[in-house]
Design a protein around this nucleic acid. Structure first.
Lengths: 344, 344
DNA sequence: GCTGGCACTCCTAGTCTGTGACTGCTAAGT
DNA sequence: ACTTAGCAGTCACAGACTAGGAGTGCCAGC
């Protein structure tokens, strides 16, 4: 456990380093903050903090920089949680007011907004298709040969698929079948529905085999082929403003990760279970390529269930309190929006 | 007009510079390619090509580099058009075979594929919503209080919107209204429909005012609020591999453009009218910030109408013939896919 | 236990210099 | 009238070197 003075020094080092991106030395610290002791004392304390693993020295004649453990202690125990400034709260709310009603666009717009406000890379994990609850199926008679199947979940239209049907099918047949499907499947998840024998239901209704296949195909196409949920990202340009990514090699490996949806998903997949905003720092991310980064995550959802994750990725040297407040505020607006738009 | 020898030298300089990214000198050129004349002669020719504006010298003691005009001449007159290798053609076709049926996902997957194969930044302009032709409206009775409106265009579901209706509305009313809308509006563009007085049609049917508003709102939400079509991009990481973008400032300004959908759209908006692949080189792009880049574009669409653009953005020093073949091949597969998926 | 002083370390930025890759020009050859 | 060999001149680039400065650790005195 850290005594009060060490805690204060650690917190100040983190704060200063976040602000300046320069290793912070004992003299600069005593001059800038009112520590009540001399730089020599601070030096001694810093040496002990380094021995305890909270700080590291880039090289002998440089100041100190927080280690992963240092940031972790700062986030968990030392920093004062922030709340979002009123005008920013309003800004976010306004963005959502004119948000489109299509789920993908809402998610995408949210990502963009978060990236802008955070001045860092933002990314979002969209709701997994297979766990969405089925609300409605509508089979539409388009012409004598073709029909259209539309699958609606609580989050909106999940799939549409055109199919061919035999000439003997009439609009009424499709309406009837839609009603049967709605009655039988309502409230189940898509995953559960795909496991069922839908062709059998169609057969019961005395409708042709091929219509059964069409229905199955429609539900099937509602699931993403690769299973992993959609991830969208925004704000990669902000990385270039960070002194830690002036090195092209670092930048490249991080950009590669950002452009790969799967990698991003894996970084935050477990965060959906957390309550409220959470932080992963450096090595905690479990990937060698981005040990220089941290990620702030917050799950979102509605009706008591979390369906996706908002995330902010940046250098470890990030303003944690602010970004956590920002992520939380954005998630809250998103939650409200989703609840409003939910199809029951 | 260039005589044959000058043309050959220009073509060779472009070819060599594209391959090596180093300014090419007269000696290197004579050694590597069988020119049949000495380096001194080549020097004279190159000096004339420079005077004519086809080549430029980064500095006095360096080799030559093609100018915008040099590249333009190369693309228009000198290069031999390529065709896509068979295995790559097959690769593209296979990707489309397992492509999802949702328009946004098809476009997104195409972008990713194009970025990967081109090893450059790829981006796509999605079909503008307002020019899509209306195919079907389905008003669905969900509960005593709520309904769901779904708008289908030739490219699939364009919008869904939940609405509240008075308790006296029954499922049959909604079906009847859907049929009327389909009969009256079929084949019109969404833009034309939004200009109509839809509430009037609803009134004619003896249905309540609020239902009219719901229908109007549904069509309205099918259009993107800002009017500009959706642009998605992929492959920004490839920029880092290019020697011309090792400079962070250049990189930053280009990344910023790539992340702004509107800028990208403006760069290629006029390319939708072109037939087959086209190229814009350096200053031709009309933007000061990306004079170091070129863009290969190809429009895509179906049924004789072009609805969007595929584009590849990279350094001016790009393999034009190959990228044009690649863009054309990808567009062709996309066209076929869209035609198959079109809702009639 | 704190502080001022001091020797020591080591990064950084700036300057300088040699090297090599070009060019343009000239004069001679075909 | 072209072409070519030769040569002097230019200039970016990389490596070596240096001075400056920030910061540390340690020690002796308060």
């Amino acid at each position: 456990m850290l005594d009060q003075r060490k805690a204060f020094i650690l917190a100040t080092v983190v704060y200063e380093y976040v602000a300046t991106a320069e290793p912070v030395g004992s003299v600069a610290l005593t001059q800038k903050y009112n520590l009540g002791v001399s730089s020599a004392t601070v030096r001694n304390e810093m040496a002990e903090l380094e021995a305890a693993g909270y700080l590291v020295q880039p090289h002998t004649s440089a100041g100190r920089v927080p280690s992963d453990a240092g940031y972790r202690t700062y986030v968990d125990q030392l920093m004062r949680p922030e709340t979002l400034p009123i005008d920013e709260q309003r800004h976010i709310r306004d963005e959502f007011r004119e948000a489109s009603r299509k789920l993908e666009e809402v998610i995408e717009d949210t990502t963009r907004l978060l990236g802008q406000l955070a001045k860092n890379v933002a990314f979002t994990v969209a709701p997994a298709r297979d766990s969405q609850t089925f609300r409605h199926a509508q089979l539409i008679w388009l012409s004598e040969r073709t029909g259209l199947a539309i699958i609606v979940t609580s989050l909106g239209v999940a799939a549409q698929r055109q199919f061919e049907h035999g000439a003997q099918i009439e609009a009424d047949d499709l309406t009837r079948l839609s009603n049967v499907l709605n009655a039988r499947l309502g409230g189940k998840t898509l995953r559960a529905i795909v496991a069922l024998d839908l062709a059998d239901i169609v057969r019961e209704q005395g409708l042709p085999e091929e219509l059964g296949h069409a229905v199955e195909a429609a539900f099937q196409s509602a699931l993403r082929s690769d299973g992993a949920p959609l991830v969208s990202s925004s704000g990669a340009q902000h990385l270039l403003d960070q002194p830690e990514f002036q090195d092209l090699r670092k930048l490249r490996s991080i950009l590669r990760i950002i452009e790969e949806q799967k990698s991003l998903y894996e970084l935050v997949a477990d965060s959906m279970a957390s309550e409220g905003p959470a932080v992963k720092i450096g090595h905690e991310l479990g990937s060698d390529e981005i040990t220089e980064c941290s990620i702030v995550t917050v799950p979102y959802g509605f009706g008591g269930e979390m369906v996706g994750v908002l995330a902010i990725l940046g250098p470890r040297r990030m303003p944690y309190a602010r970004l956590m407040a920002l992520a939380a505020g954005t998630a809250e607006s998103l939650n409200r929006h989703l609840a409003d738009a939910e199809i029951r």
